[in-house]
């Protein structure tokens, strides 16, 4: 079962809660129609493409309307405990009926407020200590800034964000001073090592770039367990939402019971294959890539 926590760029402060649906290009959370855009919407739709293909329960969403002021972020965290409690009840019933899939919670686009993330993790550790946690975007920033990265099963930085995990005092990617993408000392494998040595990496780590990396704490001291650079679709980097879809796919795969490293690698491969399938261009909307996931999964 999968709980997605994030924001969408509409109606600041409003909360949208319910299962994801996607029919004829219309994205809904419960009864609310939301824009199928970059960000948590793209992440949720990618996760849905996995659960839908596998006839698994649709991801359950807790999104706040937020255009940067943090109103939706705060509203979501305010409701988080009650939503998690009901998810846990359903998961317990599912497990009692023989289900073996884990409860997965993904934190995504949000204003990175350390204190809110700390509180959310306290709630999770109390109500759902076995839950697998995933974070990307503002959720990952908040987790890292709060010193909680190690509690997460999977973080999904891109090359512009891995320096932030590897740098001792960076609490936001905009603060990175030393390991900047494009600077001379930027080297992804070295930064992965540094992040694990600092304790700022998750159990499994995806680093998204022209070459994608999957690393694992369990693979110390080398950490990197796989890389993928084919098919090579460099245009994906310019398309807003293609990092979000990787997080969504990986969350979806985890929620149907895949091992984390397999889920990570599968998400990276699926994103590339879908990009190649539709001949992605820098101007391609992310929705076209998401729509290609379904067909690609059935190949």
């Amino acid at each position: 079962m999968l709980l997605l926590v994030g924001t969408v760029p509409v109606q600041p402060g409003e909360v949208f809660e319910g299962p994801v649906s996607f029919e004829k290009g219309v994205f809904k959370v419960g009864q609310h129609e939301l824009p199928p855009c970059q960000g948590s919407a793209a992440m949720a739709l990618a996760a849905y493409s996995v659960t839908n293909a596998m006839n698994a329960p649709a991801p359950y969403v807790l999104f706040g309307g937020d255009t940067g002021g943090g109103e939706g972020t705060r509203a979501v965290f305010k409701r988080f405990e009650s939503v998690l409690a009901s998810m846990v009840e359903r998961h317990v019933a599912h497990t009692a009926a023989g289900g073996t899939e884990p409860l997965v919670i993904t934190f995504h686009y949000m204003l990175p407020i350390m204190s809110l993330m700390k509180h959310a993790i306290e709630i999770i550790d109390r109500l759902a200590p076995q839950a697998l946690l995933v974070a990307d975007a503002g959720g990952m920033y908040a987790a890292r800034a709060a010193g909680l990265s190690g509690r997460f099963e999977l973080l999904t930085p891109d090359v512009g964000e891995i320096g932030f995990l590897a740098e001792k005092e960076a609490t936001h990617p905009a603060y990175v001073a030393e390991y900047l993408f494009g600077s001379e000392n930027f080297d992804v494998p070295t930064l992965i090592d540094k992040a694990y040595e600092l304790g700022t990496a998750s159990e499994v780590l995806i680093v998204k770039g022209s070459k994608d990396y999957v690393a694992a704490k369990s693979a110390a001291p080398h950490y990197i367990v796989s890389t993928i650079d084919y098919p090579d679709v460099p245009e994906l980097e310019a398309i807003g939402g293609t990092g979000d879809t990787i997080t969504g796919l990986a969350s979806g795969y985890l929620s149907i019971g895949q091992e984390t490293q397999d889920a990570a690698f599968g998400a990276l491969a699926m994103n590339r294959r879908a990009g190649q399938k539709i001949g992605a261009q820098v101007f391609t909307p992310v929705l076209e890539i998401i729509e290609a996931f379904g067909a690609t999964m059935h190949v």
């Binding site: 970059q38 204003l111 503002g138 891109d158 398309i239 807003g240 990092g243 820098v282």
Partner: peptide, 13 residues
């Protein structure tokens, strides 16, 4: 034609 990256809630907006 596109913007990408980031993680704060004003970015999709």
């Amino acid at each position: 034609v596109n913007t990408s990256g980031g993680g704060c809630p004003d970015i999709p907006y």
